[in-house]
Computed example of a mutant assay.
Amino acid sequence: MRPEFVDAVLGLAAMVPAGKVLTYGDVAELLDAGGPRHVGRVMSHYGSEVAWWRIVRADGTLPGGLVERALPHYEEERTPLSDLGRSSRRVAMRRARWLPSDSDLARIEVLSRKLSEPAAGMDE
């Protein structure tokens, strides 16, 4: 996996405000690179560097075993959740999905542009 892609995914994940979320697919679409599985792979390997609980599956869930670890963060940040019982809770996507502002989109564009640049030390 290219370090530039990892940096871009983590950079975008770090922008998501408390109480809001993006899906793996949202991240890929905003960066115009990779796909949900690529983003998920980055998050599974490097997500501890950012607020990993803010990047979720399209249905508002996290991979198995992470829900219990995420719940205290969701409660502290007042992230909107569905009421399916504590162990099967999911993010209420309509209320929690982050919609980046124009200035956020400009910052995301910078991250995205770095993905199309040649890697350092490589000839064009």
Score class of each variant (00 low, 15 high):
79 T>D: 01
96 A>L: 05
64 G>W: 04
123 D>W: 03
73 H>Q: 14
33 A>D: 09
3 P>A: 11
93 M>D: 08
77 E>F: 07
6 V>Q: 07
10 L>C: 09
17 P>V: 07
105 L>G: 12
122 M>N: 00
89 R>T: 06
56 V>A: 01
118 P>Y: 11
87 S>V: 13
115 L>C: 12
53 W>N: 02
97 R>W: 02
8 A>R: 03
110 V>N: 11
21 V>S: 05
112 S>A: 15
16 V>E: 03
11 G>D: 06
18 A>P: 03
104 D>C: 10
81 L>R: 10
124 E>H: 08
44 S>R: 14
92 A>R: 09
17 P>H: 04
89 R>C: 01
82 S>I: 06
89 R>G: 02
47 G>S: 11
87 S>C: 05
86 R>P: 03
52 W>K: 06
102 D>C: 10
84 L>G: 09
57 R>C: 07
39 V>G: 00
117 E>H: 14
35 G>F: 07
2 R>V: 00
98 W>Y: 12
62 L>H: 00
90 R>G: 02
47 G>R: 07
93 M>L: 15
89 R>D: 05
66 L>H: 10
54 R>T: 01
2 R>G: 10
109 E>D: 15
104 D>F: 00
84 L>Y: 12
88 S>N: 12
53 W>F: 04
116 S>F: 10
5 F>D: 00
9 V>R: 02
94 R>S: 15
107 R>Y: 02
19 G>R: 02
110 V>Y: 03
63 P>S: 08
55 I>G: 00
92 A>W: 03
118 P>S: 14
23 T>I: 07
34 G>N: 04
63 P>C: 04
77 E>T: 08
106 A>T: 14
76 E>D: 13
8 A>I: 05
100 P>N: 11
104 D>W: 01
114 K>R: 15
45 H>R: 15
35 G>C: 07
79 T>F: 03
107 R>V: 06
92 A>G: 01
60 G>F: 00
40 G>M: 05
70 A>Y: 04
123 D>R: 13
117 E>S: 14
76 E>L: 13
